[in-house]
Amino acid sequence: MDETNQILRELRAAIQEYDAARAGALAERSLAEGIPQVDSLAAMTEAIREVGEAFGRGDLFLPDLIGAAKALEAALPVLRQAMIDEAERPETRGVVVLGTVLGDVHTIGKGMVSALLTANGFEVHDLGVNVATSDFIAAVRDRQARILAMSALLTSTAVQIGPVVKGLEEAGLRRQVLVAIGGGAVTAELAHALKVDAYHATAPGGVDLIVSMLEDKAEAGLA
């Protein structure tokens, strides 16, 4: 028991010290020691939540937040892999397809969204920048995504979000996927006009919103 607590404590510390290699190794060790994956996952989630709260208070900064997310990212697959083997794999929070819209090459906000979603237990597929409508739709279909997140920094190309939403409808995929948008060019009005599900002006706020909307959906028996 002491051994178990020690490993979980170290796992938490590795995440809070941004040490991806150590977090990965500790995840392996937790398996070797027979610690239930749910316990390791709980320790890791708590660790990243504390980092997120410190970031919110202004005690920690973006590189710390992203660094902790990366450490978590290193440990997660190890635990998940083991769960597949045991056929008791708890779902990731869901698959996310993410990208910057067609005609737009800005990456920084998208990168923040990606890191934070990963840290929150989502499986993120980043399609990059200048993503064609058809590529978004194909990825949502092929990856069976629960969330499509799009970033748009240019007012001239933010309109490209429209055809994606329309394309999802035409492909019969609209109901399966929660569409979230953000980026400098996107406003609440635009989000409303485009009939997307979620918009937020910041990456952390957007991720919180996505999480809570999925929880609401689950409660309503929709997911």
Binding site: G58, F61, L62, P63, I108, G109, M112, A203
Partner: peptide
């Protein structure tokens, strides 16, 4: 440019 590390 530098990044504002509180909000990106």
């Amino acid at each position: 440019h530098a990044q504002n590390m509180t909000n990106g």
